[in-house]
Structures are given as C-alpha cells and as structure tokens.
Design a protein around this nucleic acid. Structure first.
Lengths: 225, 225
DNA sequence: TTCATACTTCGATGGTAACCGAAGCATTTG
DNA sequence: CAAATGCTTCGGTTACCATCGAAGTATGAA
C-alpha cells in the first residue's frame, strides 16, 4: 500500500517563514509562550496561534499549560535534531536569515541546540570524550563507557538517573557550523545544565548563543582541551 | 548580520507534494527526464518544468543536457542525505505516501539511497565492516582502514581511484527503515555498482527497490553475515 | 526543409493559506 | 464579583502559487 515516507508534509510545515522562525526560536531549548513566539516571528498573536496549532498537529511542537500561560516547545529531541540537520544544509548553501545583530561568531563558538551544547565548544567536548575512551560511537548512536560514567559522575551528574529515562543517554547530533557531531541525548542536556548551574556559562537572551564566563571557559578548556 | 541559517526556503521547496514526489523519484539515483518526473508526480509537463526550475534555483537538483533530452538528478550526495534524513523522520511519525503496489517490504530489505545501498542489507553491510575493523566511525564521518582497503580491493574495486575524488570515500547515512546508519560516500556508490555489475542484484523499474538474485543474496550474505 | 520530439515560457484561472480585526473563552488578580 | 491577561476561534480579505492550455524554442530525424 505504501511506498516510502512522505516528506512533503514536514516540508510544508517548515516551509512557511513564520513557522520556520518560531521553530528556530524554539531551538533555543526554552519553552516559549504564544505571545513570545509571535514576536519572534513578527506576526500577530492570532496568526501565531493558527501556526502553532498546525505545528502541534504535525507533531513538531508540544504545549504545556501552566496557569494562564501556554508554553510551547519542540515535541522531542528528534525534532531538534532534524532542524539542526536542515540548518546545516541551509548553512552550507549560504541560506541565512538576515537579522540585525553581530551574533554569528558567538553562535559558532557556543550555542544551545534544543537542549544541549553545540558549536565549537560542543564539538570539542565530544571529540575529547571519544578520544579519551569515555564515549563510543556507532553511527548516530553512542554509548557511555565505564570510564566515561566515572568522569561524568565526578562532575556531579547523576548518571543512573539519566539511564532511567526512555530516551537515549548518548546521541550524536550534526553541528551546522562545524560540520561535525556534538553530544546530544539526556547526557548532553545534563552537561549543559551543569555548566549553567555552576555559573560557567549563561544563555544569551533572545538568542541561541551561550556565553562562557572567563572563569568558566578556563575550566571548560581544562576539562576538554 | 546573520543569525542562523534559514530553513524555510528548503522547507518550502520540499513542502509541495509534486516537488516532493519528484525528489523521491530522484532518490532512485538515476537521472530522469522532465517527462518522466512529470509522470512520477502526476502533473503535466509544463507544471513539472516550472517545479524543476525552482528546484534547480534552490540547488536541490542539477540538470545535464544530452541531445534533446534534459536529465535531472539530485545536485549532490548531501541532498540525498538530507532527504533520507527527513524521510526517516517522516517514517517515524507514520507519514507515508499511499501509492498502489505492495513494495514496502522489498524497500525495507534493500533499496537504493541516491547512489548507495540502503535498507536491511545496507545496514548489515556497514555493521559487518565496522565489526571487522575495516571501517572506523567518527560521528557522521567514517574512514577505511588498511584491512578495509584490502578487503574492498579484493572485490575488484579500485580504491585509489575513489580517493582521488573530492567527496569523501566513506560516509554514514541514516537509514529511515532501520533507524541505523548505512554506508554512503564514493565507496558506498562503488559497492552498489559492483553488486549490480556482477549480477548479484538489479534495480527494480520505477522504484527504489533493489532485488537480489538468489545467488547474489547468498554471496552477499556470505560476505556480510 | 519539413516534421517530430522534448522542453520552456507565457498567460489566465482557481484554490488555498497566510494574515489580521473582532469576538469569545479561560484563568488569574483585585 | 469585575477587570485584566493570555490565548483561541471566526470571518473576510488578500496575495501567492500550483496548475494547465497555448504558443514558443531547441534539437534531432526524415
């Protein structure tokens, strides 16, 4: 009956500039309200609401009611990975959103990819983990070795807790600026959260950029030279 | 000036059902004429021509004039990889093109992914090569070891010739039906070409399916158990 | 040269979807 | 309760684009 997957529905969802802008905004990893997303896309609240219901029906975003707010976020890690993938393709072809602000270098250095660290810093971190035998690669899947578990636990991350989740602990995600993989999965998320909680870095407002403090960058580089 | 890549243009190109059908047809790896693509998409020649010029402007397809025919093909390997990626995502969500013909099981067993082998057979081949230490994985990049070069050369493939090309020899590509990686790059292409040239398998007409002969399947399984 | 094939361009049409104003619903605050 | 906030739904407009018929261009065959 069926001959292959249908890519046109997904393409159509992503193909509208307003929706694409909202999805890009959600790649920041934070759940945003409809009003915030309308602002990010430069449209009114009514139009945004219509777009969001389409994105939700299409399974790209999920909403969570909280009081009188409705927070929207990417539906799951897989959506983030798909978007990062398409961004990589678009970046290679020179298709860039022209927006005010000289944020490009900062984005390439370190940024959030849905919920984990991307950019030069993200790639270097995975490279180091693999080189030290803490993480093993097998295609797009990855595994944490005994060594790796100890190293991660030493950073104050509860590794057994990560394993209880349904989604994979380790995963690779293709980086659009570096054209190499960085670490995704629940471990990737936990590591970024750790860096921020420890004050090594903080999220830039209204951007995907991650800004490391001088002290944080020194510590990060010491850990992942 | 620029804040991140623009995914909407690509999405819009893929988002039209007629264009998506043409791109899916081109995933078969063969260059097709505008007339053939119009047939595959179920539209008239004029409409197809308009779509093709858009796809070409967008860098997704490239054309080659040959006599009074114009052959269209995917612009490069990267486009094939992107499409396979989106197909994987769509397949996970149950978005399938409903078309006549019970070809789905054959597609899952072995099919062509732009120019290399995909499906169960493709995944098994890469698994075996990695397990035997012939291919090393590093994110989405991959390398051929000394052992691997010898093994490939024994199949009658000119490995040094592959290396002279600009594109990578080894590359991984995410398989939508198996959700694991298979082998792409010039080596992936050469291997599939070898199997077909040796009569182990042949392309199914008007489909991405690859049909192995009983003898061919036996030999393939012996090589990659 | 004349005809045929392969494809592109032009022009007109129709359908769809993005968009926003206004009204409606839900939740919180005062 | 009433007022305010956050968001959705409805209705109508507009603009775009996919579509196809017809005409035009290019290559090859007769």
């Amino acid at each position: 009956m069926k001959e292959g997957p249908d890519i046109s529905q997904i393409g159509a969802l992503i193909g509208d500039p307003a929706r694409a802008n909202m999805l890009t905004a959600l790649m920041g990893g934070q759940a945003l309200t409809a009003t915030e997303l309308a602002g990010a896309a430069g449209i009114t609240l009514q139009t945004a609401s219509s777009h969001l219901s389409k994105l939700e029906t299409g399974g790209l975003v999920a909403q969570r009611k909280q009081g009188r707010h409705r927070y929207f976020a990417l539906a799951d890690d897989e959506v983030g990975q798909l978007l990062e993938n398409i961004m990589g393709f678009a970046a290679n072809r020179g298709l860039m959103r022209t927006r005010p602000g000289p944020k490009d270098p900062a984005l390439r250095k370190a940024r959030v990819c849905y919920n984990h660290l991307a950019g030069d810093f993200g790639v270097r971190m995975l490279d180091r983990l693999v080189a030290d035998g803490d993480v093993t690669l097998d295609g797009d899947e990855a595994g944490l070795t005994q060594n790796g578990e100890a190293r991660i636990a030493a950073l104050g991350i509860d590794v057994p807790a990560l394993k209880t989740q349904r989604r994979p602990v380790c995963r690779t995600c293709l980086d659009w600026s570096e054209r190499r993989s960085h670490l995704a999965g629940s471990l990737g998320e936990a590591l970024l959260a750790r860096f921020i909680a420890d004050g090594w870095a903080r999220r830039e407002k209204d951007s995907r950029a991650i800004r490391f403090t001088p002290e944080g960058e020194k510590r990060f580089t010491a850990l992942f030279p």
